[in-house]
Write a protein that binds this DNA or RNA. Structure first.
Lengths: 194, 194
DNA sequence: ATGGGTGATCTATTATAATAGATCAAAATC
DNA sequence: GATTTTGATCTATTATAATAGATCACCCAT
């Protein structure tokens, strides 16, 4: 069912995920059942303003009525605020896991190879930019396969892999000033799988 | 009953009145019963988002979720847009009535006095500025009393009256331009505490 | 395999928004 | 003074949001 509120639904979902909250966590914060949040995010209900307001507040959002003419300006502001260099919680979690994996790897691998690897990891962590958690997940998979194989060359491959990722991210970070407009962090009309 | 939506209710009512619409007129535009609009404006219901959205659209407003940090900036924009020199519907209606009254007056009064009066009326109409309908109403009352009395001096008094109003409005209009020019756009208190 | 966390999807019940329509008092208008 | 407009307030009916709670499949990690 469509209620003409799909933008709001998508925005709520995006905001929740940007804060790294599960539906259950948001449910506790907003005082709304998880099942209802699910329906809302899937645009299956025409929710009441009080519900919307509660959920929005839990996500640090405010419901406002904006004059037609002011919409582009407001979107511009919203985008610039939303794209602040706050790291995504999911990304943060993946980074933590990578660090754990590297620590585990370090405990039974030669010092020299691991030092290089750890430096690369630190580099990535320092880049305050949005990183796709899936990419980090792949990196971790490689590290895990290394741990099981114990191969020296595999470690070098991993280092190489991460260096490439670092370069990619660094490039994106520097070109972000000019690219910010076509890459809104808050998408108002789309979801993010694809 | 309070639903934490009194801001929205007040804003809707203000927007409706700013457009010079009655609840019934808005009802027709938004496809929502007048009785319901009354309840909404009096904060007697926790309305659904679709209803809010319909009414907002009829009033050229859009429902948006705005990040906490962006609220002051958005309010600033909204204010500046709202104060745009768009003529109020109620004002427009009063101006139309004044014109009708003058026409009626012209049909049985000496040409010379009326010409001057009509020129003054035209001057006022040309000033695209917000005029308090109550002031215009007073002007019309004077014109009406003239029509009943038929006095020459009364016509001159009315002309004088309207000339004063014109000056007042012209002054306000010119000072408004100088106030709008250095409009501080919008500013984000972007402290980047990250 | 197992268990924790995820989000979607059921159930059943209650609360209330939304609707169409009538009525009313008070202004505004004629 | 009579008429119209406006906004608020009723009634009665229907539609559905909100709720609590259980369940399910899916991924992820042990």
């Amino acid at each position: 069912m469509s209620y003409g509120t799909e933008q709001l639904a998508a925005q709520l979902k995006a905001a929740r995920e940007a804060k790294g909250l599960s539906q259950r966590e948001l449910s506790a914060l907003a005082g709304v059942p998880q099942s209802h949040i699910s329906k809302i995010e899937n645009n299956a209900v025409d929710l009441r303003v009080s519900s919307l307001s509660h959920i929005a507040h839990a996500l640090n959002l405010e419901l406002m009525l904006v004059p037609r003419k002011a919409i582009p300006a407001v979107q511009s502001i919203t985008r610039s605020v939303a794209s602040a260099p706050v790291i995504n919680a999911a990304t943060q979690r993946e980074l933590d896991r990578i660090r754990e994996t590297v620590d585990a790897l370090a405990s039974h691998t030669s010092r020299a190879s691991i030092d290089n690897l750890q430096r690369r990891i630190r580099e990535i962590t320092q880049i305050q930019s949005q990183i796709d958690p899936d990419i980090l997940k792949k990196v971790r998979r490689i590290l895990e396969s290394i741990e099981s194989s114990g191969s020296h060359e595999a470690v070098n491959l991993a280092v190489e892999n991460i260096r490439a990722l670092r370069n990619q991210l660094a490039h994106r970070a520097s070109s972000q000033e000019t690219l910010r407009a076509p890459r809104p962090a808050y998408r108002l009309e789309e979801d993010q799988d694809g």
